[in-house]
Design a protein around this nucleic acid. Structure first.
Lengths: 214, 214, 214, 214
DNA sequence: TATGAATGAGAATTCATTCAT
DNA sequence: GATGAATGAATTCTCATTCAT
């Protein structure tokens, strides 16, 4: 692996562990056993490292979320989707813990972030619309937008929220799966009978995952 | 006003404006035209200022949220409640933008925060239960908990979320009212016919508020 | 007791406990429950407090050490003398722990200190000379000076020396009595047979004191 | 010379000149014409600088004081020994002026200091025992311990004592040699005739040294 | 006499960043 | 590509001292 990539990886790891504001560029270099000068040979500044991490995140995002618009979406698709979303949030969780501060400093990152968010929003809208037209969701069309925003907001706040609730607790996969369960719980009251069955099936799946982790 | 209170106020103002990590104790002192020594005469350290701001927040909270458990809760009660919640979140918005970091540093604050959260959760649960037993909400009992958490999470993430969505936009009251509207939108699909009428009425109220602000 | 005197007393107490450089004027005021302003009403600055403590020390010294030059000095006189010396050193022990620094800052104090030292030196010289002429000490006259200096040096360094030897140990009276024993141990090899008897008697006395303290 | 060593040297110099509590890390950096940041690149904090100075002192000590236990010790050995002791005390004199305070702050240094002291004590005991068995010292065995402690105490307090005696006087080599003379004066009355001759010879040597310096 | 808020210089330390090699 | 010493502005915090009341 190239040094540049090693730096990105180490930074991500350390940021996730201790929070971006608590990790200095020297920490990153020391963690890799390279000199600070070398780090600055590959990156103009700390911001650029964060930028690169975000680019990687956006890349991961684009790989996992191919447009699903045309086809009929199944519960299995949703499962794959939720898995991916939460796994990405897990991989880049430091990001979610400091989003306002990080974005405020860096308008360019803001733009990129918004673009990514828009993609996500479209994805979710497409899925929900598909579920609705497929007779799984019993919800008025004008309420779709609101639902999509809620889901996005809950998903993207989940880790941060858990951090604030449990004093020094580590965020584990089980916590993420609980997030998925929570999201399914939001959708559940809005389903048709058929939809309810599928949601309950998904919930069972994630409950089993949580058991496995324990 | 006492200098101690002026410091709390100035800190709150500056934190809200620029984010707590970007405001130093010297900034606060300079903003007030006092010496750093004077600031440290009134507060042992920066943490204690944040602590005091939180105490004020908790105090405001306790004033606005008297237990409503015994009586039948009306839509007007909910309106008052939502108004208060969002107004408080507005007054102490820096807090919500950095919660994980702020709490991580200060275990004592964690405790206080959790206690306050518990109170909020009980309030929301009581209201939702009342709406349900009053025939306004059509939702299974075991889903109440999930709903309450969703509402709390959405409410407490709203400002932070908006900050990330709108590049450098100032958070205005209109933005807060949109948060209320969003929350009502979450509840709407779960209402009975009677409940729906009341929710729509509330939504109309808040849309009018937004118009006024514009 | 007047405030001024209370300040001197409190300062002495705190200095002895924690070392003069570690005690601020605010500590002293807080300890007495008075305001810093009040403290500075009675003393121009911290130095003046130290000065006043020294004056008290010098005063104590002058009371305890009346010139003994004319009469024949007995072992009992020596006992009284040693008791007094070590008790004074105990009362003002912070002073001995920081002497070079304290005197360096304050030339006037230097002068006073030297004057006091001179008195002490004369006292010791007089005693030793008396012991010698009384046939208790077997020592050449030109060695008297050296002996007196040694005794003074050992006495005044004793507390400081013990502090450096025993990590965090409190200086107790027993430690002081050991200092006396040490001094007697210096004199012992220089005594005549008669002198030896008296020294041994004194040593027995102080050993008993140490037992009592334990 | 490496910057790290320059810092140690400059700190030692300034500490000796003005007292450790009066020299800040900024003073040291300014004295060397380097930035405070650079100083902190080489040392974590001020304490670590003092630590390093002590390590150097301990190193010097170990070089100069090879165990002399096995052989018969001569007056020349003593001369070399005294020369070394006082030269070291001169090189690190700031240390001796603030020992109680410095050691109190830093328990690790305490340990190191005690270890060094123990070595010194053994050295002195070995020399005195050798002189005694060699028929130079006329002293009872149980008084050896007391004598060793006295010598150590007088030696280690000498500079500090002189500082308090002579107002603003610089500590010169002559002052150190007077310390040696004083120590010889303590031993003198305890010698046999043969020992006396050797002590007087040593004293003559040091008196000559003082003359040279003047 | 006494209060207690206020001052301001300066202490130790941090950290993103630069630069000669 | 890489090193690591060096920078310097900034940050938190301290404390002897002043001063209006």
């Amino acid at each position: 692996m190239k040094t540049r990539d090693k730096i990105i990886l180490a930074a991500l790891e350390l940021f996730n562990e201790s929070g971006e504001p608590n990790i200095t560029t020297n920490h990153i270099a020391a963690h890799l056993g390279i000199s600070p000068g070398n780090l600055y040979y590959h990156f103009r500044n700390k911001e650029e490292i964060i930028h690169s991490i975000f680019d990687q995140y956006a890349h991961d995002l684009s790989i996992h979320f191919q447009p699903l618009e045309h086809q009929q979406i199944t519960a299995d698709d949703l499962l794959v989707y939720l898995d991916s979303v939460f796994m990405l949030m897990w991989r880049y969780r430091f990001f979610y813990a400091n989003l306002p501060d990080i974005l405020q400093r860096d308008p360019e990152l803001q733009q990129k972030y918004l673009a990514a968010q828009e993609g996500l929003h479209k994805d979710i809208m497409a899925m929900m619309a598909s579920f609705r037209s497929g007779g799984l969701l019993d919800i008025e069309e004008e309420e779709l937008e609101n639902l999509a925003t809620t889901l996005k907001l809950v998903a993207s706040s989940w880790i941060s929220y858990q951090t604030t609730q449990a004093p020094g607790a580590k965020i584990t996969k089980a916590v993420l799966y609980q997030g998925v369960l929570h999201i399914l719980g939001i959708v559940r009251p809005l389903t048709t009978a058929e939809g309810k069955a599928q949601v309950l099936q998904l919930k069972a799946h994630y409950r089993a995952q949580i058991e496995k982790e324990a």
